[in-house]
Simulated assay, not measured.
Amino acid sequence: MPHLTLEYTNNLDNFDPAGALAALNEALFDSGLFGESDIKSRAIALSTFRTGVNGTRRAFIHVRIALLSGRTSEARKTLADAALAALQGEIDDQPGTELQLSVETVDLDRPSYAKAVLNG
């Protein structure tokens, strides 16, 4: 744990999702809340999206961090802030584009979560 999902609109210039995932994983590890191999992340490019109702050129990146339940609100907020800072460090200027960045944390039900690690 955790599972991190990065969704981004495919109209971003010079965005490196692999680099962003590396920076996000590092931020999560630096929090001291997780073991190094417990951090799992993935990026999903969005080709169909809409922001708002007018024709302004817009883009967004949203990070969802799914955690086992039991973390305090303060710990979750600190983690979200660290992830947002890491993400901001990976974004080039987007001239002519309004770019929205957001991070959320969500709880996974600890009693019903199942995991196995297989070493081949």
Rank of each mutant, 00 (worst) to 15 (best):
F15V: 01
A66Y: 12
Y8A: 04
A22T: 14
L108I: 14
A59W: 02
Y8I: 06
L46I: 00
L67K: 13
T51Y: 05
I65F: 09
G32H: 12
D93Y: 01
L68M: 09
I39L: 06
T5S: 13
P111W: 07
F49Q: 07
A80W: 02
R42N: 07
N14K: 15
T48Q: 13
T97E: 11
T105G: 10
L79Y: 07
D109H: 14
A85G: 03
L12I: 05
R64V: 14
D81W: 06
I91T: 04
D109Y: 12
D81H: 09
E90F: 00
I44K: 03
A45Q: 10
E36Q: 14
S102Q: 04
R50S: 10
L67Q: 10
T48D: 13
F29W: 11
L68F: 06
A83K: 06
G32C: 07
R76I: 02
G120Y: 12
P17S: 13
T9Q: 00
N54C: 04
Y8W: 10
A75H: 10
F34V: 12
V117L: 09
S102E: 00
T72V: 04
A22F: 01
N11F: 04
P2N: 06
L99F: 10
E7T: 13
N119C: 00
D93L: 11
T51S: 11
E98M: 08
F60I: 01
R50G: 07
D16T: 01
G52R: 05
D107K: 05
G52Q: 08
D16V: 08
G32Q: 12
T72K: 08
Q88G: 13
T48G: 07
L118D: 04
I44Q: 11
L118N: 03
G70I: 09
D81R: 14
R71E: 00
E74P: 03
G19S: 03
D13P: 00
E7W: 02
V117E: 14
E74W: 01
D13F: 04
E90Q: 15
N119K: 11
S41G: 14
A114D: 06
V106W: 01
A45K: 08
T9D: 01
Q100P: 01
D16E: 07
L28I: 13
L84F: 05
A27R: 05
S102D: 02
T51G: 01
I65A: 11
S37N: 12
F34G: 03
S47K: 09
A43I: 00
R110F: 00
